[in-house]
């Protein structure tokens, strides 16, 4: 079983390399990191901010940049996962594969692992580049770059898993669009929840909570934020500031992380079941 899963995972990775998907992503990322390096340099050495202002501006700016990269990671995850089954069914590529002595579940797990490896590589590269460059030009390094990267990757992996499930039943385009739309809706529901908390509107607060359970991308993004926040930033917000899309008081709880684990297993299991029952 491992052998067959590994075969499909290796094929998935090789496809990304051959299609120059990785090269394109790396090119865009390097350009964005270069731009951010220039911005951070201006922020740190431009002379417009006092040292006290810098200690708040640098981490908040880094959170904003990492937010942008979290979008890129999530959108890339959806973009690579949505065609992985749908387009291969449409083109007939999968017909010659699934008639071999391989279980359909092994095809899905192999693809998931291959795509997850690509995503992990990209999330790690983005984090190292961005945080490394910021450290280099401004001397600021967030408190836990590793856990930030892990949360960034987990957020992308979540969307990747969802897009893979959608890809077993929808066309490539539909799976991609629905995946990205759900990701956007989950983020917006997080903002709605923040407004509900700020203005004491219970219904809006509930929407935010429910969305974090149904699609935990926003919850994981807040995990990434927490490990980007230095103590100075947490102290500055200690006067009753509520969570918002770019600030959080505490890391996700173990219960929440356990739920995310259950979510992964359930959605991946649904993808396997769905593909197993799919007529090709």
């Amino acid at each position: 079983m491992i052998y067959r899963i590994r075969t499909i995972a290796a094929l998935t990775i090789r496809e990304a390399a051959r299609r120059r998907l990785l090269a394109a992503l790396v090119g865009i990322t390097v350009a964005m990191v270069g731009l951010s390096a220039w911005g951070f340099d201006r922020l740190a050495h431009g002379g417009a901010l006092t040292s006290g202002e810098s200690t708040l501006a640098l981490p908040q700016s880094l959170i904003l940049f990492m937010f942008m990269f979290s979008f890129v990671v999530a959108l890339s995850a959806s973009a690579i996962a949505s065609p992985s089954v749908a387009s291969e069914i449409e083109s007939g590529v999968l017909m010659t594969v699934v008639t071999r002595p391989i279980r359909r579940g092994e095809v899905i797990i192999g693809k998931w692992l291959g795509l997850a490896a690509l995503l992990a590589g990209y999330a790690a590269a983005v984090s190292v580049l961005e945080m490394g460059v910021v450290d280099w030009v401004s001397g600021y390094l967030p408190p836990n770059p590793v856990l930030t990267t892990v949360y960034l990757f987990a957020e992308g992996l979540l969307l990747l898993t969802l897009a893979l499930l959608l890809s077993t039943r929808m066309s490539t385009l539909a799976a991609g669009v629905v995946g990205i739309a759900l990701f956007g809706a989950a983020w917006l529901a997080g903002v709605v929840g923040f407004l509900g908390t700020t203005f004491g509107i219970g219904a809006l607060r509930t929407i935010g909570r429910i969305s974090r359970v149904v699609l935990p991308t926003d919850g994981l993004w807040h995990g990434a934020i927490y490990y980007l926040e230095p103590p100075s930033l947490l102290r500055a917000h200690s006067l009753g500031q509520n969570e918002n899309p770019f600030f959080t008081r505490s890391p996700p709880s173990w219960v929440y992380l356990a739920w995310v684990g259950v979510w992964f297993v359930a959605v991946l299991g649904a993808a396997i079941l769905s593909f197993d029952r799919r007529e090709i």
Binding site: E15, R18, S91, G92, V93, M95, T96, T99
Partner: peptide, 15 residues
């Protein structure tokens, strides 16, 4: 393992 199949409408991985 003992079955070969040539589909009518198909493609192999073009890359």
């Amino acid at each position: 393992r003992r079955i070969g199949y040539l589909p009518e409408m198909f493609r192999f991985q073009p890359w």
